[in-house]
């Protein structure tokens, strides 16, 4: 098995008096795709925000490539090769597609390769090329998600943090985006994926963790969890009555 790229140990995060994460430990190996599952407010996004330095951990450790990054600021973490495509896409609405992509390369100094990478992104999603001089605010939700993903890729990340890439997007485009993610996986990009759509996430992921009210309540390989969808659903709902097959969700 390949080496561990990201390791989170007993992470605890508070928002004011509210505890958002307690005792979360997880690890992501190099080249792996790991899904973080769970209901709204379970702490998935908070975990990503803690990794990328947007929120500071109250206690616990975050190690990336054998380096403690828990006290680094977001810019330093991006410079280490961790790209975070945030919840709600957060493209820069008043700036053009091209400018958004160029901003994704903010931490890079290899000017000559940046243009080539932009071209590569346009090959990946040709629609973005058509819209390259349009401002991002005028794009559809799906196009904005493509832009948010490619903007994150412009950093040439070793590790990609993706927050709900399927949220509010037409199924056809979701499929297109996840096909791209599968390609990325083949090229060896490590991905930590937050998803509500369990089915689609487990199809892409190697392993998954299920969070509930700030704690990890279940983890296992994707194939295992796919076979055991009742347990996943139960973990989601807090051990209550199982009402739906998570596969159908």
């Amino acid at each position: 098995m390949s080496e561990t790229l990201l390791k989170i140990e007993q992470l605890e995060v508070n928002y004011g008096a509210v505890r958002a994460l307690k005792n979360v430990s997880l690890e992501v190996k190099s080249g792996e795709v790991v899904a973080l599952l769970g209901a709204n407010g379970a702490g998935k996004s908070t975990t990503l925000r803690a990794i990328s330095g947007l929120v500071k951990a109250k206690s616990g450790g975050i190690t990336y490539a054998n380096q403690n990054i828990a006290r680094l600021n977001p810019t330093q973490i991006v410079a280490l090769g961790v790209s975070h495509s945030p919840e709600g896409r957060r493209v820069f609405p008043g700036m053009t597609v091209l400018e958004n992509l160029r901003l994704g390369a903010s931490q890079r100094n290899d000017k000559e390769n940046i243009q080539a990478d932009i071209d590569r992104m346009f090959e990946m999603f040709p629609i973005l090329s058509e819209r390259k001089t349009q401002t991002a605010g005028t794009l559809s939700g799906g196009e904005q998600q493509m832009l948010a993903l490619t903007r994150a890729l412009m950093n040439r990340p070793k590790m990609l943090l993706l927050d709900e890439p399927s949220l509010g997007i037409a199924p056809l485009i979701v499929r297109q985006i996840f096909a791209t993610l599968a390609e990325l996986k083949k090229t060896g990009t490590t991905i930590l994926l937050v998803e509500q759509n369990v089915n689609i996430a487990l199809n892409l992921a190697d392993r998954a963790y299920v969070l509930r009210t700030g704690e990890i309540v279940l983890n296992g390989s994707a194939s295992e969890l796919r076979l055991n969808s009742e347990r996943v659903a139960q973990a989601y709902l807090g051990g209550g009555i199982e009402t739906q097959d998570s596969r159908a969700a």
């Binding site: 990328s52 330095g53 947007l54 600021n73 977001p74 810019t75 991006v78 410079a79 790209s83 975070h84 495509s85 945030p86 957060r90 493209v91 820069f92 609405p93 008043g94 700036m95 901003l103 994704g104 903010s106 931490q107 903007r151 994150a152 412009m154 950093n155």
Partner: peptide
């Protein structure tokens, strides 16, 4: 436009 997103893209 968006300070948080700016941090995230490494500005």
């Amino acid at each position: 436009e968006d300070l948080t997103a700016s941090y995230l893209v490494g500005i």
